[in-house]
Each structure stands twice: as structure tokens, then as C-alpha cells.
């Protein structure tokens, strides 16, 4: 198959899958649709997070800052302007915040960036809480929009399609190569002609804008929101662990991590409501030990090892192990 034909086949397959997924509300009940909404939401969060953090290995815990800002933008604007404008405004606010944060922090690297991003999310939550208590005089807000679960689901599905399309485009463009180079060695990347700061800020802002939109789109489902709900740091942690489980450097990796983990979390929180956080922590630790590079990388390594064993059993042309696993990227370790 020529590369062009492969792309066409890929696009056709994606459209078919998207149509099938879009039909879910017609066959699923309320509970099933609720699950699909949650799954789609985390699939976008993990995929959008990986656009920036996957290749560059900057582990951001600021996901919930943008998610919450999206939700609050809708809560504040929903009754003032038409819904499409609400979404556009939320995206604009997320983008502006991301550019501000990006310009201020992307000179930080490694664990300092992780801590800053976590601190940012807490700061935004505290600021919103302070504002609500001291200025508006109430803690929570109601969102009354004529949107049902299926409308929210379709919007999230659209957002997922957009996020994956952007990820696919980045992976094939020079920006994708630049991001991977930045993840490997910023100094070499800079001396190869890449404008490091601009590239990082642009991708961080793109990723954050998509995350903001997830919060905005999902918020009408809750009807009532308050800071502790939409700025809950667990959302940031879940996003990271989902992306890392699937493999944040692969297009479909985060999706592959988000779906099973979301279902598992649902099952755990329903069946072990009191022990849920303990089980969650244990799971994170296990994943970090067993699958530090994600499911996809793990599967590729196993496949390569099996192929190498078969090659050794039959006198096939010898292939060095390193050449047999060229795509295995190094761990996006939390130390960066």
C-alpha cells in the first residue's frame, strides 16, 4: 500500500469508528451513556495532555486548573451569551491562562515544573474559592443549559476526533520531530535551530486549550459546580496515569490507557467506596513498576523479543535486538 493509500484507509476507518461511537446514545441506557461520557472525557484529557507532555516529557499536573477554568467559564457565561460563544470564550480564557503560565514556567524543567504545575492548580482553585466567597458571596454555581447527556457525549466525541487529528498531524510534521528532540535534549534541539521556548509554549497552550474545552463541555452535566469539584487534583493524577499506562508518545496510547482505567475506577468507586483511594494508590505504584513505559511500548518489546526468539530458533538472518525494537521510546519518567 502506498503511503497515500494508507492515510486514506486510516481516515476512512476513523470515520467509520467515529460514526459507530456516535450511535452509542441510541442503543445505550442512561447508565451506559453516563459511562461513555466519562470515558470520552478522560480520553480527550489524556490525549490532549500527551500532545505536549508525551514527547517533551514535561509532566504537567495542571490539567485540572484548565479543566476547572473551562467549567467555571461556562457557569459564569452560560446565561449571558449563546452557547457556541460560551465555548469559544472558555477556549480563549484557557488559552490566555496557558500562554501566561507557559511563558512564566517553561524555563523550569524536571521536578520543578511538576511541582509548579501542581501548585498552579491549587492556586487557581484557592483564587476561585476566595473570589466566590468574598465577591459573589456564594461557593457554588448552577449551570442550566438545555443539554442532555447525549449532546455532551457528541461534543466530547468531536473534541476527541479533533485532538487525535491534531496529534496525528503533529506526529507527521516537523513540530512533532522538534518536540521529541526537546524531550531528548533541549540543548541539542536549540543548536539544531529549534526555537525551544516558542515551541514549548505553543504546544502547552494548544494542549491546555483542549483540556479547558473538556471542562467547559462537561460542566452542564453536573448542573451544580463548586471549586472542590471541578478543581479536584485527582483529575490531574488520573489523566497522567491514564496517559502513562497507554503510552504518551503514541497517538492512541492515552486512549488505550483511559478506557480500561476509567472503567476500573468506576468499578472500584462503586464497589469499594471507602477503600477507593488506597486501591488507586496501590494501582499507580504497580503500574509504575510493571509498565513504566506504557502498554504499547510493552507490547512492542514483547513482540520484538518473541520475533528475536523465533529468529534464534530458525536460522533466519540475524538481527540485533536494538534494531528489532526501534520504536521503543525511553520512559517518560516523572524525573523530568
Amino acid at each position: 500500500m502506498t503511503p497515500r493509500a494508507r492515510v486514506a484507509a486510516g481516515v476512512a476507518l476513523a470515520v467509520v469508528v467515529l460514526c459507530l461511537l456516535a450511535a452509542a446514545p441510541f442503543v445505550l441506557g442512561d447508565y451506559g451513556l453516563g459511562l461513555m461520557v466519562g470515558m470520552a472525557s478522560f480520553a480527550v484529557l489524556a490525549s490532549a495532555w500527551s500532545l505536549f507532555s508525551g514527547p517533551t516529557r514535561y509532566i504537567s499536573l495542571a490539567t485540572v486548573a484548565f479543566f476547572g477554568v473551562g467549567a467555571y467559564s461556562v457557569a459564569v457565561l452560560a446565561e449571558k451569551i449563546p452557547y457556541p460563544l460560551v465555548l469559544l470564550s472558555a477556549a480563549g480564557i484557557g488559552l490566555a491562562l496557558a500562554l501566561l503560565v507557559g511563558l512564566a514556567t517553561l524555563r523550569l524543567a524536571g521536578v520543578y515544573f511538576v511541582i509548579f504545575s501542581f501548585g498552579l492548580a491549587e492556586l487557581v482553585r484557592e483564587l476561585v474559592t476566595w473570589f466566590e466567597v468574598n465577591v459573589t458571596g456564594t461557593l457554588g454555581r448552577y449551570i442550566f443549559l438545555p443539554l442532555e447527556a447525549r449532546h455532551i457525549y457528541w461534543q466530547l466525541l468531536g473534541l476527541l476526533a479533533i485532538t487525535l487529528a491534531i496529534g496525528c498531524w503533529i506526529g507527521r510534521s516537523r513540530i512533532g520531530l522538534a518536540l521529541r528532540a526537546i524531550g531528548d535534549d533541549e540543548m541539542v534541539a536549540a543548536h539544531s535551530g529549534i526555537a525551544i521556548a516558542r515551541t514549548k509554549v505553543a504546544l502547552f497552550a494548544l494542549s491546555a486549550t483542549l483540556i479547558t474545552l473538556v471542562g467547559a463541555v462537561q460542566s452542564p452535566r453536573w448542573v451544580y459546580i463548586e471549586p472542590n469539584m471541578v478543581f479536584n487534583p485527582t483529575i490531574s493524577f488520573l489523566t497522567v496515569i491514564m496517559a502513562l499506562l497507554g503510552g504518551p508518545t503514541r497517538l492512541f496510547g492515552p486512549l488505550l490507557g483511559a478506557v480500561p482505567l476509567f472503567l476500573l475506577f468506576e468499578w472500584l468507586s462503586a464497589n469499594f467506596p471507602n477503600h477507593y483511594p488506597i486501591l488507586l494508590g496501590a494501582l499507580f505504584i504497580t503500574l509504575a513498576f510493571v509498565l513504566p513505559r506504557g502498554v504499547l511500548a510493552f507490547a512492542e518489546e514483547r513482540l520484538a523479543a518473541a520475533r528475536a526468539r523465533r529468529g534464534a530458533a530458525a536460522p533466519a538472518p540475524p538481527r540485533p535486538a536494538v534494531a528489532a525494537a526501534p520504536a521503543a521510546a525511553p520512559a517518560p519518567g516523572v524525573e523530568r
Binding site: R174, L177, A178, R180, A181, G183, D184, D185, M187, V188, A189, H191, S192, G193, I194, T249, P326, A329, P330
Partner: peptide, 29 residues
């Protein structure tokens, strides 16, 4: 152009991509 005192290649990239990078962001883009 420069090389480094301690050799620095981009570890997650292929040999070809290490060079493509400099062409993609060089003067000819």
C-alpha cells in the same frame, strides 16, 4: 554549527531523524 564536548545524540530518534531535525529547522527549512 557545533558538536559537543561529550557526544550528544538524540536518544529516542533514529539516526536519520537526528539529521532530518537539523534540516527541518535549518536555514532551508
Amino acid at each position: 554549527g557545533r558538536t559537543f564536548q561529550l557526544v550528544r545524540v538524540l536518544s529516542s530518534l533514529s539516526v536519520l531523524d537526528n539529521v532530518r531535525l537539523a534540516l527541518a529547522f535549518g536555514p532551508d527549512r
